[in-house]
């Protein structure tokens, strides 16, 4: 199997900014810094020879305690050309990425989910609210340092006791998104 067209085109257009991370289980993987993700997506969608018009999925990944801690993973598909590829965007704590809602409308809920579950802030998102959890919920449940059973409160007697550090980092987190809740445990 030769190198697909999109690999050469991405290399030509973005040079060393977007790194090709090889091929795993039938899919080429690219790593892009947060600053170029939107450009890369728009390029892949609009280029008449690539036409990655379908955004399958956006998901967050927490690599705690590694750094950079978070990954935002995009899965793209080209319906006319039947190609799939994966873009990875590694971001540090606090995670911030530009939103791709302007490129695909479907990104809206995917990004809200990643925000809800991991606290990844998508700049430029039109309506960044929690999607599964209720508005008053504290913390981000899919993060690796969030206990599986949640924190103990009136409705959750089986949860873990909140320690000083975890509760303070949670309340910090509510005030401003710039705190680093995972680092203190």
């Amino acid at each position: 199997m030769g190198v697909p067209l999109y690999c050469t085109k991405i290399a030509k257009r973005f040079g060393r900014e977007v790194e090709h991370e090889g091929h795993s289980h039938g899919m080429h993987v690219f790593a892009a810094p947060p600053s170029v993700v939107v450009d890369l997506c728009r390029f892949l969608k609009d280029d008449p020879e690539l036409r990655f018009n379908f955004l399958s999925d956006i998901c967050g990944v927490d690599r705690y305690p590694q750094t950079p801690r978070f990954e935002v993973v995009y899965h793209l598909y080209s319906i006319p050309l039947k190609w799939r590829l994966r873009i990875k965007c590694r971001v540090d704590d606090p995670p911030r990425v530009s939103s791709v809602v302007g490129v695909w409308k479907t990104a809206n809920w995917h990004e809200r989910e990643a925000y809800d579950m991991y606290g990844i802030v998508f700049d430029g998102h039109p309506d960044l609210r929690r999607i599964y959890m209720w508005e008053e919920f504290e913390g981000y449940p899919m993060r690796k340092d969030f206990p599986l059973r949640g924190y103990k409160d009136t409705y959750n007697p089986f949860g873990e006791e909140k320690t000083e550090t975890s509760s303070s980092s949670l309340s910090d987190d509510q005030d401003n998104n710039s705190s680093q809740p995972g680092e203190k445990r």
Binding site: S24, H25, S56
Partner: peptide
């Protein structure tokens, strides 16, 4: 890492 999808009755069901 794998992203694998099937055609479920509702549409593309993928597991990453």
């Amino acid at each position: 890492e794998i992203y694998s999808c099937v055609e479920a009755p509702k549409g593309e069901l993928g597991f990453y």
